[in-house]
Design a protein around this nucleic acid. Structure first.
Lengths: 198, 198
DNA sequence: CAGAGTACGTACCGATCGGTAACATTGTCA
DNA sequence: TGACAATGTTACCGATCGGTACGTACTCTG
């Protein structure tokens, strides 16, 4: 059940330096923001040293890009996961994701979507962070269109964009309002939009 | 028509250092992000020097807070402006704002809402930037509720939150997708939500 | 015209930023 | 035992960060 070749049951921590850096950077970048976190803080909290970081990543920007690719992967898993409970029912799949997001985003301490946050922190289109994040969002838009098509919407692209607005709105409003924020209405609003678009 | 006591018609630039700093900081903070802009860049682009900045503002954080208060004021003006064309018609007022936002947010180079961006750049609830931005957003939420009440919605608070999700979603999606992004659907989605809530 | 404020600039501070060079240490596998 | 890869250690780099001590020029008032 546990990883490879550990002699016996050491539960945490001794993994490769590159992995620990990646995990620590993920947490810090997500929680505190990318620009707010220096490489010094990352390596010290990861229990490694700076040269180890620069042996694994050629620059901070590359580490940021790696973080965002990791984030995108975890996001896709979280987005697709509810599909297992609703095979061949894209509407139920989407609503299941939306309902889970609604709950997460209307609790205190919610930090939104790491990819959305990255676009805002790095408005420069040439920056790798911006590029990775935007590409992920374009994939999400396409995926939503696909689902809206599959659920037989009148104008699937239009509905997909409406849902995307609600979802992105939940990411950011969750951070702004915390507990009891507008994100708690995401589920009913998504249903209302879907119902009005069939 | 022009300001006070200029000897004659000098059209631009010689104003007080504090004002030039405030204006320059506004543009730079908004376009490039707050953390991305150093005080050095602000003063040099404003054509003044650092001590002038620190005579007018006691710290960078205070300048940031001033920027966000300015932003909030301009936002309120932009939000209320369409009301002049639609006295006693909150629905038309709201839709007029929404339609203008929709156009702005689906053009290339759009940078979203400075207040929303600030919440994301400063997740720490104790930071003045976070506090000013959140307070402004709470005011907006209350204003939307008021308008939804006035337009006779079934559940005004619920509708207000739905509209807020769409609006915030447009702010961030505008930055992510640029031209032809989902924000161009804001108008039709807002109408659909309103119609389904009466 | 003297003198006091006011408004601003010159030059600098220590701290931190991202990033690196050189070398010592460890664990692994042959 | 020896070679190799991975990591740690230490000390450092130039640039930039936010912030300030201090001198100077203008203007308003007596």
């Amino acid at each position: 059940m546990r990883s490879k070749s550990s002699p016996d049951s050491i539960p945490e921590a001794p993994r490769r330096a590159a992995d620990r850096i990646r995990d620590t950077a993920f947490d810090l970048f997500y929680r505190e923001g990318i620009r707010a976190v220096g490489v010094e803080e990352i390596v010290s909290q990861a229990g490694v040293t700076k040269p180890s970081l620069y042996r694994a990543f050629e620059s901070k920007d590359e580490l940021i890009a790696a973080y965002l690719r990791d984030y995108d992967q975890r996001f896709c898993e979280r987005f697709e996961a509810p599909g297992a409970d609703h095979p061949d029912d894209p509407k139920a799949h989407l609503l299941a994701y939306v309902d889970r997001l609604s709950r997460r985003a209307s609790r205190d301490g919610y930090r939104g979507c790491g990819l959305t946050n990255a676009v805002i922190e790095y408005p420069d289109h040439d920056h790798p962070a911006h590029q990775v994040a935007v590409e992920s969002k374009q994939n999400l838009r396409e995926r939503l269109r696909e689902m809206c098509r599959a659920m037989g919407a009148r104008d699937p692209d239009e509905l997909a964009d409406g849902l995307l607005l609600l979802i992105e709105g939940s990411y950011v409003s969750g951070q702004t309002f915390g507990d009891g924020g507008p994100a708690r209405m995401l589920g009913v609003m998504a249903r209302r939009l879907i119902d009005a678009s069939m």
